[in-house]
């Protein structure tokens, strides 16, 4: 427990769940929020600097590493780095081939980016919760959430990005009319034109809910899993401040939870990728 002894458990948890937010203060000047209440007051124009920093850093690391390998790629026997990169690419390619039936060369790189990026963001969860915030506290940075996928802004940012691509390709492949028909002619169908008009709002409501539910469930699934995992790490680390026996038990618990979490972070990245592929496939197929 990095914070001083005067901090209560509730404060400790709240502290760990507050982003480093930069935005307009009530007095009109711009700056970092000093508490979660201040951060909330910044409203829409507040920026979670920590989420964006880690998210960008991890995505850039992944892309630069892969691009570096791609630049020196050889068709002869591959080295270790190339072998690893090719293994990942072939894994993604296989998944895309099995779930996506259309012809679109954006889907595979989209899936690759999502899988690797989300995996790395989730991986930050395995770094001890206090380590990076503790180091940064010496630099005068008091709030730090190092796992970007526990910030709903990040997960919604990606799921809405996928959602927009989905709508874009739906309209591109089926035409605006085809897309509109898909939203209004199902699930209730009728030959009679009067019935058709009658069913139209009902269908639109049902399909609209289904459509909106996609990005929401897509991002909340990832966010919920990672947020809960992070929360448990924070709760376990509370034990470190409560005597030797509880500290030892906390260490053991943290190890067990971290091992289990290796599965969770990989699985969540994989699920997000598969759902993206499936949504893109739906955008490309006629019903």
């Amino acid at each position: 427990m990095a914070s001083s002894g005067t901090v209560t458990s509730g404060e400790y948890i709240k502290h760990h769940l507050t982003n480093l937010t930069y935005g307009p203060r009530p007095d009109g000047s711009w700056g970092f929020a000093n508490s979660s209440a201040e951060a909330a007051d910044m409203g829409f124009w507040g920026v979670n600097v920590d989420s964006l920093f880690w998210s960008f850093l991890l995505g850039a690391l992944f892309l630069l590493f892969f691009a570096k390998v791609a630049k020196r790629i050889t068709t002869d026997a591959p080295g270790t780095a190339q072998g690893f990169v090719e293994m990942v690419i072939e894994f993604i390619d296989e998944n895309v081939r099995s779930s996506f039936s259309g012809k679109n060369d954006v889907v595979a790189p989209l899936a690759l980016t999502i899988f690797c990026w989300i995996f790395l963001m989730n991986f930050m969860d395995l770094i001890p919760v206090d380590l990076i915030p503790w180091g940064l506290s010496y630099l005068g940075i008091h709030f730090q959430k190092v796992v970007p996928s526990t910030d709903p802004n990040v997960t919604f940012g990606m799921s809405i990005g996928v959602f927009l691509l989905m709508i874009y390709y739906s309209i591109k492949i089926k035409g605006l009319g085809g897309f509109a028909a898909e939203l209004t002619m199902h699930p209730f169908e009728a030959k009679n034109p009067i019935l058709k008009v009658l069913f139209l709002p009902i269908n639109f409501f049902l399909e609209g809910v289904g459509l909106i539910a996609k990005p929401v469930s897509h991002s909340l699934r990832l966010f919920g899993n990672m947020y809960a995992g992070e929360m448990i790490f924070i709760l376990i680390s509370l034990m470190f401040g409560s005597g030797i026996i509880l500290s030892l038990a906390g260490g053991a618990l943290q190890f067990v939870w971290a091992v289990f979490h290796i599965l969770v972070i990989t699985l969540q990245a994989f699920i997000f990728m598969v759902l993206t592929i499936v949504y893109m496939d739906m955008a490309h197929t006629h019903h």
């Binding site: 935005g23 951060a39 409203g43 507040g46 920026v47 709903p152 802004n153 919604f156």
Partner: peptide
């Protein structure tokens, strides 16, 4: 946990 411009 606020939705803000971070999303964009």
């Amino acid at each position: 946990m606020n939705i803000n411009v971070t999303l964009l």
